Simulated scan of single mutants.
Amino acid sequence: MVYSNRYGVIFACTCGVIMGVGFGANLLVFSLFAKHNTLRKNRLDALLLSMTLADFFSLLLIPFTLHSAVSFSWPLGDTSCKIYQFLLAFSLAASTYSLCAVSMARFMIITNPYQPPSTDLVVLMLVMAWALSFFISLPLRIFATKESLVPGLTNYTFCLPTIQEHHYQVVLSQFVLYYFIPMMVIAVNYVRLALFLHKSPVMSTASARNTRRASLMVFLAAGTFTVCWLPGYILELCVYLGLYMHGQSWEMFYFTCTVLQYLHPCVNPVLYVLLSKRYRSQPGVWLFHCNRNKVHPQIISVTESF
């Protein structure tokens, strides 16, 4: 039996581009942190570095996905499949919970700039983000398995996150733990932050411009997380309700959902670091934004962390 692999090749090419851009953006973030050595001076950068490490780790796993998409086979054994699925879930959770920590720290820094989070609190946030990611990912991927989805064709094997009997329990758990709870944490912190920014007294045109820019970044941060991850869970819901049918439209929807999920590790470093005012003038960063005249606020800027 011959299978058309048109979408597999397109998917592989698209993910290859995403992987290249993601590696470049994340490596640039690493170099900026190393060059400026701001981790001790700016505690938020430690959380941003945690997020970048998790995103970079996710990108390292993409080649295994590309091989499966092109060849319709998982190249390694069942044990390797379990390890791969666990590492994929772990890196996703670490990135997501690091984002939660970033949103909380950002709110505390901007609303109370004279009493920023202590070093101990930031370290506690980091430990909790990675420990929680480990302990929720391990049980969700303990049933990961290598299976043949086509009866009689053992060469067509895939590395699945769980066995069929537990599929929707895992999907529901992942939706709650990886998306709904983190999204609520991020949304609450950023809504409170947006309200604070708009209620703050404006002392100059420059300050008003900074406030508008900060509000836009708040919206983009929460919006990007939603856009990248919500469609995938909507697709899973459609499959569960029996609405999914094989056809060009549904295949394109599946393709789009998967690409958006892999795009998130590329967007994070650009949105949270490379568009920051602190690094805007650095070599290479100009690739990710339009050059504009710098604004020098006349009061302490509440948007410095953006």
Rank of each mutant, 00 (worst) to 15 (best):
Y233H: 13
L235N: 09
S148W: 02
S207D: 14
K35I: 12
A221P: 01
A93W: 08
P117V: 00
S95F: 01
R141A: 02
W130G: 03
Y262M: 08
V21T: 15
P269D: 13
S215P: 01
L274K: 03
F72C: 05
Y279H: 10
I181V: 15
T157Q: 08
A222C: 08
Y272P: 00
V17K: 04
C290W: 06
P117H: 00
S305C: 08
V227P: 11
F219W: 11
F225G: 07
V2P: 01
V227G: 06
S173E: 07
G22M: 07
F135T: 14
Q164K: 05
F33S: 04
V302W: 01
P117W: 00
E251G: 04
S58K: 05
P269F: 13
V239F: 06
T211I: 15
S173C: 12
L149G: 14
P161F: 14
S71R: 02
V21G: 07
N293E: 13
R43P: 04
E236P: 07
Y262G: 06
Y168G: 09
S58E: 09
K199R: 15
G20R: 05
H296F: 12
N155D: 14
T211A: 13
Y244W: 13
T205G: 06
S215K: 10
G24I: 14
W229V: 10
K277R: 13
L287C: 08
V122P: 01
F86D: 03
I10S: 13
Q298G: 07
Y156D: 15
A194E: 06
A69T: 02
I299T: 14
L76Y: 13
